[in-house]
Computed example of a mutant assay.
Amino acid sequence: MVPKQHIHRDIIEACKKGKESARYELYQLYARAMFNVSYRMMNNREEAEDMLQESFTLAFMKMDSYRYESAFGAWLKRIVINTCINAINKRKVELTYCEEIYEHDREEDSGEEEPRFTVENITRAMEQLPEGGRMIFSLYLLEGYDHVEIAQILGINESTSKSQYMRAKRRIAEILKDQEMSGF
């Protein structure tokens, strides 16, 4: 079995030599997955497409720094996430504590059946989260980063990452419950 780090090695080596057809092939292999990462971070299709292009351009420029210590997809995903975070930071968006979301009283679980979760209604719910909560939710739950890593990436405290994640998770549950009640 080929180790993850060596998947597509021939294509990667051809990219390092500047072969355009290899770059195109590598792009075709990873663009969809990396777009999904970018979209979850940016919450906007056009911005996600821009970040995807910028990420691939950066990856191709830094291809010589890829040393097969991790899977190429993991290396590329880190570039995509950092590119998105840099773009968000350039807009000078501050992470908020989202306290205003929870001003209303929460109802206790009445033992009713849980709402049906679909990709569409979860995505719709995520789009309604404040940017900070959405980023942390995406990095933790969808990208698999732990709170220590998220804190380092975003320049926040680990406890802030944890509390933002819990608030985002609760808010998504509320949105999904509201969607189900309204028949969405």
Rank of each mutant, 00 (worst) to 15 (best):
E149A: 12
E131P: 00
N157S: 12
A87F: 11
R170L: 13
T96D: 07
I156D: 03
K90F: 09
L154V: 05
M41D: 01
R78G: 11
V119C: 04
N121G: 03
Y39P: 00
A151E: 00
S182Y: 05
R91E: 13
G18W: 08
Y102S: 07
D105M: 12
S21C: 07
C84A: 09
R40L: 08
V119E: 11
Q5N: 14
Y66K: 06
I81F: 00
L142Q: 14
V119N: 06
A87R: 12
N44W: 10
R124Q: 07
N44F: 07
M166T: 11
R124N: 05
Q28H: 05
L26T: 01
S159H: 10
F56S: 05
I175P: 01
G133Q: 06
E107L: 08
Y102F: 15
P130L: 10
A31C: 05
A74F: 09
N43E: 04
R106L: 13
H8M: 03
F60Q: 06
R45T: 13
A31T: 02
F117L: 15
D105P: 08
F60M: 11
I11E: 06
I12N: 01
C98S: 14
C15Y: 03
E47W: 12
E100T: 04
N82W: 03
K177W: 09
M135C: 01
A59D: 05
M41R: 01
V2T: 15
R91P: 00
G183W: 02
I88C: 03
Y66N: 09
S182A: 10
K62Y: 10
G111I: 01
M135Y: 03
S110Q: 14
G183K: 01
E47S: 14
P3G: 07
V93M: 12
E13G: 03
G183T: 04
F60H: 06
I172K: 04
A33P: 02
D105K: 12
E143H: 07
R106S: 11
I136A: 01
A173F: 05
S163C: 08
R40F: 07
D109V: 04
V93A: 10
Y27R: 03
D146H: 07
R32A: 10
E108N: 09
I175N: 01
S138G: 06
E46R: 11
